[in-house]
Design a protein around this nucleic acid. Structure first.
Lengths: 218, 218, 218, 218
DNA sequence: TATGAATGAGCCTTCATTCAT
DNA sequence: AATGAATGAAGGCTCATTCAT
């Protein structure tokens, strides 16, 4: 207890001297709180169908009051989209990790893309949700596009390394779309368990990957 | 008096004979009304985000009262799914038409699949919606599965005609998934007009189709 | 067809001559149809909680259309009350039957009252419903009162035969009320089966009956 | 500065100590609000037939919005049952008060039971309603049964003090049922004013009470 | 007369958002 | 800043009653 209090004291002392540092701290704290809320949101998204998630659920999971959320996010959509962006960045990062290793293959990339999104349902659910909903504010649209572009650029790099020439963007688009399609189409494969479904998706992902490989090795 | 009874008898006889026709008419009328409602629903689906469509909207569009819908559909989900099934049958038919022609190619099949679903947004939106929502009544699930299976069987046939051997079902799955993925992923391609987007999708569909062609001609 | 017209002609001829007989016939037919509807209503009342019974249910059970009911009953309440009255008359009759036999005892009367109302739930449910609802039209109130009075008069007779002197009406009221109370209070005795409940009610009815017997033999 | 910090520390200490008190306050406030809503519900129940009472009515009477009720009661049935239980506890208490006095008589008990329930119509209406409706949630059923059992136990005690031997429970059941029956059967006694009706019920209650007294003094 | 489709008011319930504390 | 009670619009659905056929 005492230590914590001292800390507060120190930071107050700092405030007077270095306002910039303080507001940086504040800004930092603000980000941390936003992250806490988004984390909570993700946990809720993972636990129930998208359309059943309420602000109260998220507040409860985050351990704060519903009203408090609105200090950090102007409305529900913004929170949802930001949560989605965080997740999307996770996907991009996981793809990048694969691609940064030597000797990666398109099979591995496809597989880890599927694995990551299958384990993190909610990102993929949210992505689909926003596509369907269609009415994202422009400011948010920019950020989502940036993430998409980033991911596509990585696929571009991959295809180039695989020997593709000319404009590889369409290939990246097709690859990205096909993997998304696998996830969406078989997400609720009737009468199959989760592990079975994942396995099936991996089979399909390998087929898709091999098709691209064939093409580039011709 | 006797005569009267005979007559009654006769008219009853008539009634029995024409009852079939009569109830067939009624049945027909009922179907027509269901179709009117489904048409209205489709128009509404096309006009706003899926999750914002209400029974009142549809009733208004159909020019009837909200309560009237419930004489034809037991609940909202059933109406939505039936609307989806009508559309899905449309897709299946359009695929079948292509496949029934002699010189069809996988390119043409892919293209018409994309075209049909692009022109009929709501079917594909609904498909995605149901996948995301996850909890469909079993009775309805059976019917949706039947349609999916039917479409996949057609792709099976196509791949066999293309010379594929062994179990072609995974190929059909991958093909189906990839096309779905194109539609979903680029449906809201930012900053592009509708026609541009369709064109882009067709490019991607052709890429996918060509990948499968390559593979089978190896 | 011709014959039919002849018949109409005949009946028209009749009409002119014996208007009384014809309208009596019509009146009769009308009563029959009302009875059919009321029978159907009783069957429905017996099959589900009172508050869940709809006009459509009754129409369906009667084999007619919902609209047709309104030719015979001006509104739902009237139908319900009339159905109740028919039932109440049944109770009165069943009490009377017991009382018309020589050597009946108050025990037997109590028991058959309970039995009859237990087997015919719906009358008793409806009775309670109307008491609770409280807003019966005066015209109907008169008839329900008449039935109640009739039943009470029979109990009066019984008590007189048992040797009661003076104003026996309060005794009849208390007896009637106590039996009703048994039915209502234990109708949903938790965790007991139907037969068990009936048995318990009969035990209680015998207790009540014996109390009255004691009093009068003092 | 230090002092201030100490203060903060102290206030934290206080917070921890008083947290119990704080949440007790909150809990208290919650109960108060529930009571306000239940009070409003009772007023509405008294003003119109039971089946016509809506959540909006109650919200309006309580001076809050419809949605607010659902922060205190999960659904309509729970609100209704809790209102009933409050009343039932009132009855039990009023019976207990009589029984805790030395020279009580069964007449007095019967009379105060009738008085209390007559003055608090809605409890008895609700009791009857739930019995008729039949389908109460198990969780609520337990609580209603507990109250009923409690009241019956008190009657048991009374009968034992009156000298009854053996299993007195059937006597309690019969007594309880008979009093209920009086209330229900004569609640709408046609053409009588409220006071007249109450008087009549009291006459009948005394008759019932005297019957039990006779029996036990034999 | 009978039909049964249609009406439309009204019910219970939910939930993003606001605001007094 | 945080709380969380309250709002109030809106949604899905039901059903007595009406009315064109």
């Amino acid at each position: 207890m005492t230590n914590r209090l001292v800390l507060v004291y120190i930071s107050r002392g700092k405030m007077m001297k270095t306002k910039g540092a303080f507001s940086r701290l504040k800004e930092q704290e603000r980000k941390t709180r936003k992250a806490i809320i988004i984390d909570a949101a993700e946990r809720v998204f993972a636990s129930k169908p998208f359309s059943k998630v309420t602000m109260r659920d998220i507040a409860g999971e985050a351990g704060i009051s519903p009203g408090a959320i609105y200090r950090y996010f102007p409305d529900q959509q913004t929170l949802f989209v930001e949560a989605f962006l965080i997740g999307a960045e996770g996907i991009a990062k996981s793809v990048q990790e694969i691609l940064s290793k030597d000797g990666y293959t398109i099979d591995k990339v496809a597989e880890s893309f599927i694995n990551y999104l299958f384990e993190n349902d909610h990102y993929f659910k949210m992505m689909t949700h926003f596509i369907l909903e269609g009415s994202i504010k422009d400011s948010l649209l920019d950020r989502t596009n940036a993430v998409a572009r980033y991911m596509l650029e990585q696929f571009d790099t991959m295809f180039k390394k695989m020997g593709a020439t000319g404009d590889v963007r369409p290939l990246s688009h097709a690859f990205f779309a096909a993997l998304n399609g696998i996830l969406i189409t078989f997400y609720n494969y009737p009468g199959r368990g989760r592990q079975e479904i994942l396995k099936h998706m991996q089979v399909l992902a390998r087929i898709i990957a091999s098709l691209f490989k064939n093409r580039l090795s011709l």
